[in-house]
């Protein structure tokens, strides 16, 4: 256990270097959800006037959704880092060393989680300027950050699994592009459930779990059972995703 933690830390430090050595990359990563936030708020401002809209303003409604979608968009590309290591032989070297398999995955995931946290905090601060308020206070903000981190870890782990199985950048990019938009728009991130066609499977979407848990936790009267249920689901999905990613090394090692 100690070795796993130590190795995860070593490998995540290595990946975070990309951000510290290229500050424009960091700025672009953090700015992306802010840009979306501003233009979606303009684009969909009328939605807030529709009967049955559950929030005072569209930005107020959008903030948790933007945090979730931003984390998904960012961490979906985590597999490309794994692919790069694979192509450069770095992964083979790690697999021949005493590093535990799970540490290779967590070493790739931890940076994604950290980026998701910073991205969320920047977004929350920026949203204040748009008049968004957080009646749920620090507890609500913590719940939201935790949910976002679980989503980032899940998505990054699935992206790693895909990378280890397909081992091709082209396929990886195509599949990720194909998946992230449906998951973003078929969730409660941008539209309240009541305003969408009822056949859309939004409730099965982990992005919705993050958004719904965050919205209620940030409200003045949180529905705690609903929060716990979604955090529990997110934890379960996250665990399964990480284990699947670790298991993908097996299929990779059969083919090297």
């Amino acid at each position: 256990m100690k070795a796993v933690a130590e190795h995860s830390l070593l490998l995540s430090t290595r990946q975070l270097r990309v951000f510290t050595s290229r500050s424009w990359y960091l700025v672009a990563t953090l700015a992306q959800p802010l840009i979306w936030m501003v233009f979606l708020s303009g684009l969909l401002s009328g939605v807030a006037r529709l009967p049955g809209f559950p929030a005072a303003s569209y930005p107020q409604f959008l903030t948790p959704g933007m945090a979730a979608v931003g984390a998904m968009f960012g961490s979906a590309w985590a597999g490309l880092t794994m692919l790069m290591d694979l192509e450069r032989g770095v992964l083979d070297r790690l697999l021949m060393s005493p590093v535990r398999r799970v540490a290779i995955i967590t070493g790739n995931l931890i940076p994604q989680a950290l980026i998701a946290v910073v991205q969320t905090l920047v977004l929350l601060a920026a949203a204040l300027l748009l008049g968004v308020r957080y009646p749920g206070g620090p507890v609500g903000l913590t719940v939201m950050t935790a949910a976002v981190v679980l989503l980032a870890l899940t998505v990054a782990a699935l992206s790693n699994t895909l990378a280890l199985r397909v081992r091709s950048r082209e396929v990886q990019i195509t599949v990720i592009q194909l998946l992230i938009f449906p998951f973003a728009f078929l969730s409660t991130a941008f539209m309240p459930e009541g305003l969408m066609a009822s056949w859309l499977p939004t409730a099965l979407n982990p992005v919705s779990w993050v958004v719904d848990a965050s919205r209620t936790a940030l409200s003045a009267q949180p529905d705690w059972p609903a929060v716990w249920l979604r955090l529990g689901l997110l934890t379960a999905v996250c665990t399964v995703s990480v284990l699947t990613a670790v298991n993908a090394f097996r299929s990779y090692q059969r083919s090297v």
Binding site: R88, G89, V90, R93, M96
Partner: peptide
């Protein structure tokens, strides 16, 4: 200790 036929160091470090 293994020295592979192809490179395995990280060129960006």
């Amino acid at each position: 200790g293994v020295v592979s036929q192809s490179y395995s160091s990280d060129p960006s470090a």
